[in-house]
Design a protein around this nucleic acid. Sequence first.
RNA 1: CGGGACGUGGCGCAGUCCGGUAGCGCACUGCAAUGGGGUUGCAGGGGUCGCCGGUUCGAAUCCGGCCGUCCCGACCA
Length: 489
Amino acid sequence: MSDQKRITPRDEDFSAWYNEVVLRAELADHSPVRGSMVIRPWGFGIWERMQRALDDRFKETGHENAYFPLLIPMSFIEREKEHVAGFKPELAVVTHAGGKDLEEPLVIRPTSETVIYAMYAKWVQSYRDLPVLINQWANVMRWELRTRLFLRTSEFLWQEGHTAHATDQEAQEETLLILDLYRRFMEDWIAMPVITGLKSDAEKFAGAVRTYACEGMMQDGRALQAGTSHHLGQNFSRQFDLTFQSEEGTEEYAWNTSWGVSTRLVGGMVMTHGDDQGIVVPPRLAPTQVVIIPIHRSDEDRTRVLEKAEEVRTRLHEQGIRVRVDSRDHLSPGARFYEWERKGVPFRIELGPRDLESGQLVLVRRVRQEDVGKKGKEFLPEGEVISSLPARLEAFQQELLERARARREERSHRGVTSIEEMKEILDGPGGFVYTGWNGDPAVEARVKEETRATLRCLPDPDFQSSSPPARCVSGEGESRTEAVWARAY
RNA sequence: CGGGACGUGGCGCAGUCCGGUAGCGCACUGCAAUGGGGUUGCAGGGGUCGCCGGUUCGAAUCCGGCCGUCCCGACCA
């Protein structure tokens, strides 16, 4: 692809655009190991901020971080029947170590339920030891047949939370608490609106009783499962003897939950906000929120301009803004503008000799507001730029969320009743298709077969609120009336 | 595993049909002039043409085999 090729997210070949943007935006490279990736500093900076924000929330809800082994004995994985059936095909296995064949193969963790609950079984004796609320930041590996940078790499980084509770109800509340935490994080930080709901039995996590998920809608009309929260019931505690003595003195199996989000969120951010110029990073996630581009001709100008740039940088920094000066003078100003736009920095300040004379600065926002003039440039007094930037960053963050929500609504098709209608929508603009649902797995399989769409979730309006109900049941009890379908990544 | 395409300096490609000893753009290095939306000029550095074998005076090019990558399906955060 030529260096000057325009990047067009609405091209038919969206994946080519996506890879082009991601690579050229210096977020990630393919690694020498097929299907895994190298995350470059700018991309990792974004992930790092996601980690920090999520970690703060986990602390607020009483969770602690811990670390468990990378290698899991094969026999652990095999203990839970559905779990092994779900993961077996994509396991990477270590069979040889220390110069000889191992008696028992070791699996590189695809997820850590089994090792973690094996340990919990040793830690928990009494109801007084519960709940156990632990999170782990780690890498995992799933040998996927087809990979896509950030969205589905064989090795990825994530956080996985694993909890043990004394009652079913408590575990259910935990599951929904985290689901809600995820939804808020995705909206507040990534500016990525998501639908939350229950997965069908066909789509749920291998070994879970119920799986809840956050589903985002990308600009090409395909859905992205951005995070999941599972109620594991007693499936794992029974296999790993995770028991406790209750207040009444009886021996009981604990109730477990697990939940996770991954570096896939970075891909979600790219595909939610990216445009023809490259990616767009929401201000709260941006490693650099404001970049200052000094412009000068003579050496004399250069000194004055750089001094002023440093002064502006310091004053913005004092306001808590992440700001940097790009003073590379082997690149023309235009080249530097393009580079930072491609990387998605929310605001740029241009500063040259003319601005020194006028006491103004040129302020340019990454995604233009329609009411600003040519090329989105605003000529403002220096003091105003500095004092208004915190509010502008916040407004930009909000606007990204609103725009993304509006795009999703345009792509949401409600009250669809026939497969023909559904196919027409999916072959056209794509998006979320809301249909009736009678809970029949045979219907689900047929629709999937004919439309290539999957049942993303059974949304419950109550889940969208901050007080999650505890009355959701999959496959039995109340039947849901609505299902959301989409073609997904 | 089925169906398609492709492996040539760091990246993107041409050259392959019709064999003659490797080229273009970008990037990189140096110098000079430029600089408010991807600057220009001059001078440079860098390639076992995926691998193995065969045909030939001679192979990036023809033949055989192997390996790898990407895209579309099944699987998946």
